[in-house]
Design a protein around this nucleic acid. Structure first.
Lengths: 109, 109
DNA sequence: ATATTTACTTTACACTGTAGAGTATTACTG
DNA sequence: CAGTAATACTCTACAGTGTAAAGTAAATAT
């Protein structure tokens, strides 16, 4: 379909990064998804997807310092890369175009 | 993530069925996608996805009669089933919720 | 008969989604 | 300081989805 496919979950994970902002790390991204979608997201699924997105060059990450709290081990912070933002925008545009004019029909099932 | 994942291509194919209306069959669905997304879609990808969607109970199909034209062999017409419409609506709602508030940010990326 | 057109299928493999279970690193407790 | 608890992340495995190359089937045209 596309040069490189963007799965629905990958799409949501990237939006989670954007929503979580500068403090986007594994757990906060998962919380964003769970809060806004009502679905439970496993850590394995999230971290694996984050790694794959990074390998594709759509997001980047950096390992920060531990924080002084119980279990406060070092977090890996994630951020979007331009290519990822571009891909996200394209995917959104395609869906909006396809939904355009049929959304009402779908909503009234 | 979800009970059953809905891939981006599956999502687009279902929207293609809705857009193509009562005359939705393999070729017209592909044309809908190509016209609205600017991407080329292989027949194999489309038919395979259509079959998988039918196996999941999200769409249905019926084989019609041949038409009196060169190469006018019998077409298989596709239509949405309620479960598919429901799934499409859920996926759209989830994406809209996640995009809400960050769309501008992404567009100005 | 043979060619041409339209519609659909088969096969194969890479990529994406998901869960179960586990590892690592930090602080708290006694 | 040994054991426990909390937070963050990893490994492994397998089913589901995306994609293309090539092929089959059934209709009309020549």
């Amino acid at each position: 379909m596309a040069r490189q496919s963007l799965g629905e979950f990958e799409h949501l994970i990237m939006l989670g990064i954007v929503r979580a902002g500068p403090e986007a790390y594994g757990v906060s991204i998962i919380e964003e998804l769970e809060a806004h979608t009502g679905r439970s997201v496993s850590q394995a699924a999230a971290y694996l997807t984050l790694r794959r997105l990074e390998e594709k060059g759509w997001i980047k990450s950096r390992l920060a310092d531990p924080t002084p709290e119980r279990g406060g081990r070092a977090k890996r912070y994630f951020a979007m890369k331009p290519a990822g933002i571009k891909r996200l925008r394209e995917s959104r545009a395609t869906l909006l175009t396809m939904w355009d004019g049929v959304a009402t029909e779908i909503d009234e099932g």
